[in-house]
Design a protein around this nucleic acid. Structure first.
Length: 423
RNA sequence: GGAGAGGUGUCCGAGUCGGCCGAAGGAGCUCGCCUGCUAAGCGAGUAUACGGGCUUAAACCUGUAUCGAGAGUUCAAAUCUCUCCCUCUCCGCCA
């Protein structure tokens, strides 16, 4: 959610910033709503002030045995008017709130301008795509041939975009999870968390999934619970409503969770393989940063994600999302794209974003500077570290050999009982 | 699922027959003093949100709201009523 005061003071510059990301707001509509809200508020509050004053007089009169009936009678009409005003006010406030919740975050000044994913500049690349003396296969061929990925049974049990992982594949998934978590907790200073996998409406609103993107979520029938699409949701909402000490910042959390996504609107995209599933595992990093230093935190988090790919010896590149390609809540995002020889292209495996105070305002995440002062919104960041299913894909496709076997990256072997080759 | 207890400010904790409660008291924190040693003493201050006034802005002044959430009764509710949520205890059930 954007700052109400900023919208009141400089609606034109807000609109300009949002236009960069291809989003338009109706400034006139906002201004009209806000002015209406304030007019109602002024009248209602002044009448309530009168009522409070008269009530005090009534109290005095009653205690001294005086007659307060005329004042009480007069308050009857005042109360009727207050009731009408407050009902109207509630409607206007609800409308304004809905309006505010539907507006995306503004891009940071350092974000390159652009229209869509074709305008995302490459920040840097690491590693060389391996050269094969044969035509590299896609991961689902390898996975099925090696009897590890069972898409047929996944479909039988649940439907399309589900998989059953067997034997080495299940083990590899767990190895990746443990490897990622170990590095984040031992070397990067993150605290490992285990959170609910379903959360309530308020939590989903705090990070921005609701109210606008309900179609992307799985909701439980008969319960006001939603399956989390990423651990970002429970982790970022962890301290909602709290006021943290400045000395506690930055807080760094990591969690591995299944992620559930309806993938509505992605029909026909990535229908084969593990790339786009209704359920996938992801290790997430979330940071609660000091607003003065949140962009340093973003660079740090990006490096944390990159470290994992380097240890796995997987070639990748980093792109900066342009203004037109960023997510709803983000002010700046880096995507890590890993090289997939089977597809012969780079595919997203991590997304690291600084949401600044956009989520903090929704979820009421604040801190107080040392030495007192008013609480301020902190900045929230989130990044994949990494998407486990896609990491498994990358390991298979990059490690494959002509005979159909797959070499496991050295860093992962301790997590696989020393196994060096699959197949 | 059954029975009971409870949800108050950063924290702990008082709120009697509804009014003088934004809320006693304590801790913590901030500032000042004192002391001269890692502690103590003294004094003052210390909620948030949204409006209005003033202002370049802030400070400041002022109003309203907030004592789990919502609704109701009343001139007036932390205090009464109802619904819901959450926590705790006991029983049942269960991994």
């Amino acid at each position: 959610m954007l700052d109400l005061k900023l919208l009141q003071r400089e609606p034109a510059s807000v609109a300009k910033a949002l236009a960069l990301r291809g989003s338009s707001i109706d400034v006139a509509e906002f201004t009209a709503l806000d002015e209406r809200r304030r007019a109602l508020l002024v009248e209602s509050e002044s009448l309530k002030g009168e009522r409070n004053a008269v009530s005090a007089e009534v109290a005095v009169l009653k205690r001294s045995g005086g007659d307060a009936s005329s004042r009480i009678e007069r308050m009857g009409t005042v109360n009727a008017r207050i009731k009408v005003l407050d009902q109207e006010l509630e409607l206007v406030q609800a409308e304004q709130n809905a309006w505010m919740l539907a507006v995306p975050n503004m891009p940071h000044a350092s974000v390159p301008e652009g229209k869509d994913e074709n305008d995302n500049p490459v920040l840097h690349a690491w590693g060389e795509p391996p050269a094969f003396s044969f035509t590299p296969r896609e991961h689902w061929e390898l996975g099925e041939a090696l009897n590890g990925l069972d898409f047929d049974r996944g479909a039988k049990l649940a439907g399309s975009r589900f998989v059953v992982m067997r034997h080495w594949a299940a083990r590899l998934e767990r190895a990746l999870v443990n490897f990622f978590l170990d590095i984040h907790t031992r070397e990067h200073g993150y605290t490992e968390m285990l959170t609910p996998l379903m959360v309530n409406r308020e939590t989903m609103t705090g990070t921005g999934q609701l109210p606008k993107f309900a179609d992307d979520l799985f909701k439980l029938d008969g319960w006001d619970y939603f399956l989390i699409p990423t651990a970002e949701v429970p982790l970022t909402n962890l301290h909602s409503g709290e006021i943290l000490e400045e000395s506690m910042l930055p807080l760094a959390y990591t969690a591995q969770t299944p992620c559930f996504r309806s993938e509505a609107g992605s029909y026909g995209k990535d229908t084969k393989g593990l790339i786009r599933m209704h359920q996938f595992t992801k290790v997430e990093m979330v940071r609660f940063a000091h607003p003065d230093r949140s962009y340093e935190d973003l660079e740090l988090m990006r490096v944390h994600a990159e470290t994992l790919l380097q240890r796995l010896e997987l070639p990748y590149r980093v792109i900066t999302l342009c203004t037109g390609d960023m997510g709803f809540a983000s002010a700046k995002t880096y995507d890590l794209e890993v090289w997939l020889p089977g597809q012969n292209k780079y595919r997203e495996i991590s997304s690291c974003s600084n949401c600044e105070d956009f989520q903090a305002r929704r979820a009421n995440l604040r801190f107080r500077r040392a030495g007192g002062g008013k609480p301020e919104y902190l900045h929230t960041l989130n990044g994949s570290g990494l998407a486990v299913g896609r990491a498994l894909v990358a390991v298979l496709e990059n490690g494959q050999r002509a005979d159909g076997t797959v070499v496991i990256p050295k860093a992962l072997r301790p997590y696989m009982d020393g196994l060096e080759v699959i197949g």
